[in-house]
């Protein structure tokens, strides 16, 4: 390795270290300032809570056992809505791709449904599905399904024309073209739709829990607001941040592994 190459690598490493230090520094600074200002009563801890209070709340929730119940409930809803969204999105995308007329027919409805703020349907969903976990999953599904459906479908449409011609010249059937070309060729878009899907699912699940729930992180936040205990609200948000970060990292890992 030449000296210049070593210098170059050193520079890159240094840059990475600086970025990490500054990032951690920002978090510590904010948390520290927050704690200090509430301690000195510059910020009212009753409204703003504080890092130490949040930690204490999380610990006490963990001791009472309800913390894990909330996390598992939310996680359960996320996993179901997420897999349903991807699975159904994939199947419907195939149907639309294979049946062009159908795709043309449903196109304006999909656009309408896509632009509609799905929360508006919340009350109806509750009445139809009941005030239970089903309503939450339907809510999340409404939000994530159309996005993943459209992403996957557009991936299918983007398939290279010459490759389709090639398979046709071999006399391939529609099913074979799907199996050998369209589906494997869209792997990249399908996997990148996972990322979009997970964030959409999170929005849907938390929104659903805001509307109806007796358990879950969304419930925790709403419950905290109702009894005006900002410690619980903030604890819920912190847990949610950690949970979504972990889920996002898992999806990123999957993406790395399969691309």
């Amino acid at each position: 390795m030449s000296d210049n190459q070593k210098l170059f690598l050193k520079k890159i490493r240094l840059e990475q270290i600086i970025i990490k230090i500054v990032q951690v520094g920002i978090v510590i600074l904010i948390l520290g300032l927050w704690e200090y200002l509430t301690l000195k009563k510059v910020l009212n801890p009753f409204i703003f809570s504080s890092p130490s209070r949040i930690i204490k709340t999380i610990i006490s929730l963990a001791y009472s056992g309800s913390l894990f119940e909330h996390i598992f409930t939310t996680l359960y809803e996320i996993i179901i809505a997420f897999s349903l969204g991807i699975g159904l999105g994939f199947i419907i995308a195939i149907i639309l791709y294979e049946c062009l007329i159908l795709a043309k027919i449903v196109d304006p409805f999909l656009t309408m449904l896509n632009s509609l703020p799905k929360v508006a349907l919340g009350p109806i969903i509750i009445i139809w599905a009941g005030a239970n976990i089903k309503a939450i999953i339907i809510m999340a599904l409404l939000i994530n399904l159309i996005v993943s459906l459209l992403t996957i479908y557009n991936g299918f449409l983007g398939t290279d024309e010459t490759k389709i011609k090639l398979l046709k010249s071999f006399g391939a059937s529609k099913k074979q073209i799907l199996k050998y070309l369209i589906i494997p060729g869209s792997k990249r878009t399908i996997i990148s739709s996972l990322k979009l899907n997970i964030s959409m699912t999170l929005i849907g699940v938390i929104m659903g829990e805001f509307l109806v729930s007796k358990k879950g992180i969304g419930y925790l936040i709403i419950y905290g607001t109702q009894i005006f205990n900002l410690n619980i609200v903030m604890a819920g948000i912190v847990i949610l941040i950690i949970l979504s970060f972990i889920l996002y990292e898992i999806v990123k890992f999957i993406e790395k592994k399969f691309l």
Binding site: L167, S169, F170, G171, Y180
Partner: peptide, 28 residues
């Protein structure tokens, strides 16, 4: 029986060279 060669090689990037070569045989 027709063999068709297109404007570009149209090889499938996710298949190995060998798997690409037997693609027509597999389909037929």
């Amino acid at each position: 029986v027709i063999g068709y060669m297109l404007q570009n090689d149209a090889l499938f990037p996710w298949l190995s060279v060998y798997e690409n070569a037997i693609l027509g045989l597999k389909i037929q």
